[in-house]
């Protein structure tokens, strides 16, 4: 589903050149639940961002669902992300000015759909994460776990084939973290969604199909 070939990412300033990713090659199969671990600053999030086409590699190729994404325009990238990929972030990144339902509807705004369709799909996504009773709340009125569930609903509302989760349980206590993990595992099992998750938590990583470890920008496992 995701094919990375010799991915390299270099951050340059006037005086310093930092190699964040060093020739990473990785295949993620369709329906796989992969976790990425490693110490802080080893390049996990950079790798996830590159997989999600949020950042461009300095070298290497990315194929998603057999499609070569190198050379995509801003518009093509936006459309591709919208259709294929859902994101879950450690700090949720919900829009506090919008109600829960509006937050979940967000990815649907960028594809052709009616307001009624958007509302139906967002309501269904919120039901999947058990938040049907928080539709009209604002994010600031929710707990951390609830916010992350809203973020999951937002990630799945457009029925993407891939979900990229950057430390989704990082800001949550273990009980909440387990709940979120259960939702992701369930999503992977029932919907067949390919999930790549960055985590610091060994226990969470063990629940996934495969673990990739990074160290200083290189894949060590």
């Amino acid at each position: 589903m995701i094919h990375l070939e010799k991915i390299e990412k270099v951050y340059r300033t006037d005086t310093v050149e930092t190699l964040a990713l060093n020739s990473i090659s990785l295949n993620v199969a369709k329906g796989e639940f992969l976790s990425i671990m490693g110490p802080s600053g080893c390049g996990k999030s950079t790798l996830l961002n590159i997989m999600g086409l949020l950042d461009a590699p300095s070298k290497g190729e990315i194929k998603i669902d057999t499609q070569q994404t190198t050379g995509f325009s801003d518009k093509q990238l936006a459309q591709f992300r919208n259709k294929k990929i859902g994101f879950i972030f450690q700090s949720y990144h919900l829009i506090n000015d919008l109600k829960v339902l509006d937050n979940v509807e967000l990815p649907l705004l960028y594809r052709s759909s009616t307001a009624k369709q958007r509302k139906e799909l967002a309501t269904a996504a919120l039901a999947k994460v058990g938040l049907s009773n928080r539709v009209k709340h604002f994010p600031t009125q929710l707990s951390g776990g609830q916010k992350q569930r809203v973020a999951i609903a937002r990630a799945i509302v457009g029925e993407p084939e891939i979900i990229l989760a950057d430390e989704p349980t990082g800001n949550l206590d273990s009980a909440m973290g387990n709940e979120i993990m259960e939702i992701l595992i369930n999503l992977n099992r029932t919907e067949g969604t390919t999930i790549v998750m960055v985590t610091h938590d060994e226990q969470m990583a063990k629940k996934t199909h495969r673990l990739v470890r990074l160290f200083d920008g290189s894949q060590v496992q």
Partner: peptide, 16 residues
């Protein structure tokens, strides 16, 4: 910034 990032991540192009 966060909202801009999220909107871009979920499919908003710069033009949008």
């Amino acid at each position: 910034y966060s909202e801009i990032g999220v909107r871009k991540a979920f499919g908003a192009s710069s033009k949008t």
